[in-house]
């Protein structure tokens, strides 16, 4: 069985280390917060201006002045702090955030990432994604391995407009885990989802990759 979204985000959560400052992208990466391993304490940064993001508020305690980057109501923790957008991106751009987990439309073998627009079809904007990939120390992408059409999203070269060049460190899909290493070496398949075969991954992947897995 390929991994579900929950499985993928649980796998991504295993990359968290105690004491990390972490930014989770909107959408699927948000689920990583549900799987933080026991004994690991991380501080979640929300790029709209908060460190120490808490869980969703209890019903009736929602505050319109307290939202995350996905505009969802959240809560604060004892350790939380608030700041403006320029300060927030100084943290991000300045290399003070340890890890970012993002979604993607395409990841290329050279570490390029495309996740912000499909020309003529879907135009939402890049939000903070370009800043995150430019400044955060380690970038993990969580995405479905293929489009609904079956086309591989791990590609030789991105055909969609880029979010960043050579920025992806690790890719987690429903089929497995790939070290991308920002394109500094060959893409390496390091883990298969349970029941997924190497042949299946090869058949469904456009980019070339190496592996020690049988």
């Amino acid at each position: 069985m390929p991994w579900t979204r929950d499985d993928m985000t649980a796998r991504a959560a295993r990359e968290l280390k105690d004491g990390f400052y972490v930014n989770l992208g909107i959408g699927i990466p948000t689920l990583v917060a549900n799987h933080i391993p026991p004994g690991v304490q991380v501080t979640l940064q929300s790029e709209n201006g908060m460190l120490g993001m808490g869980p969703y508020p209890f019903e009736g305690e929602e505050d319109p002045d307290l939202v995350n980057a996905g505009k969802m109501t959240i809560s604060e923790l004892d350790a939380s702090s608030y700041f403006n957008s320029a300060e927030s991106f100084a943290m991000i751009r300045g290399g003070h955030i340890d890890l970012s987990v993002l979604g993607a439309m395409q990841v290329a073998a050279n570490g390029d990432l495309a996740n912000w627009m499909v020309p003529g079809k879907m135009v939402k904007g890049m939000g903070g994604a370009m800043d995150l990939v430019a400044g955060v120390k380690r970038v993990i992408v969580v995405m479905e391995h293929c489009e609904k059409s079956g086309r591989s999203k791990l590609v030789r070269e991105c055909t969609l407009p880029l979010t960043g060049k050579g920025v992806v460190d690790l890719l987690i899909t429903d089929l497995g885990v790939f070290e991308i290493n920002r394109g500094r070496s060959s893409v390496r398949l390091v883990e298969l989802a349970p029941g997924v075969t190497l042949e299946e991954v090869r058949a469904r992947t456009e980019a070339d990759f190496v592996t020690d897995l049988a």
């Binding site: 948000t30 549900n34 869980p55 969703y56 209890f58 019903e59 929602e62 505009k71 969802m72 109501t73």
Partner: peptide
Amino acid sequence: RLTTRPRTEKASA
């Protein structure tokens, strides 16, 4: 986007 958790449950966001 209104997101809340029920009072009975301890699950986080």
